[in-house]
Write a protein that binds this DNA or RNA. Sequence first.
DNA 1: GCGACAG
DNA 2: ATCTTGTCGC
Length: 222
Amino acid sequence: MHQLPNDPGEAIKLQNEVRKLVKIGGYIDIASVRLVGGVDVAYLGKGASQACAVAVVWDRLSGEVLESVYAQDEVIFPYIPGLLSFRELPVVMKACEGLSSNVDVWMVDGAGIAHPRRLGIAAHFGVLLDRPSIGVAKSRLIGSHLPVPRSKGSWVPLRHDGEVVGHVLRTRNDVKPLYISPGHKVSLRQAVELVLACCTKYRLPEPTRMAHNLVERYAHFS
DNA sequence: GCGACAG
DNA sequence: ATCTTGTCGC
């Protein structure tokens, strides 16, 4: 991660610069995507001055986790809606540095371009690594949408300021839908297709679900 | 001014 | 995110 902003105003200025580097579109071939990465963060205690992160590499063919790396660090930036990346990316990037696999696409908990300045944590993450990334959020940050049909695979567009910034996707029958948006170097259609391909048995795609399970366990025993 | 607001 | 008990369903 680069230098942390000193305040929200500085953070927003930085986002307006970094957003120019985000690429949306088909830089990858979905059929050749085998290794999908997932990252997640957990906080220690309630003072929440320490946080840990995990980066996992999930193999789509075997359905197994090939690699996982942990990191722990002090959390400096406060949680402010729209500025999540400044709080969580420092630890996340630290975990990614220990990785040895070549990940094809990354999935991150949170928004991609479905963000007030089109630079949610997943997009910011993708730009820092200059690798394809997808935002997988469990709830809405911005935008509006119609009700999503109840069956798995159905979706409705998520609109914000006159543009479609993501899809609200039902990954299982009768479960809360997920907010999917492109991060970096992927199209919205590819993002949705990949998330569905990784949702084998649960609401969350395996890479993100595995990362969450592992980092929770790590935080609990550390 | 008031409400909304990823993790 | 984190703090928590019971409960519904496969």
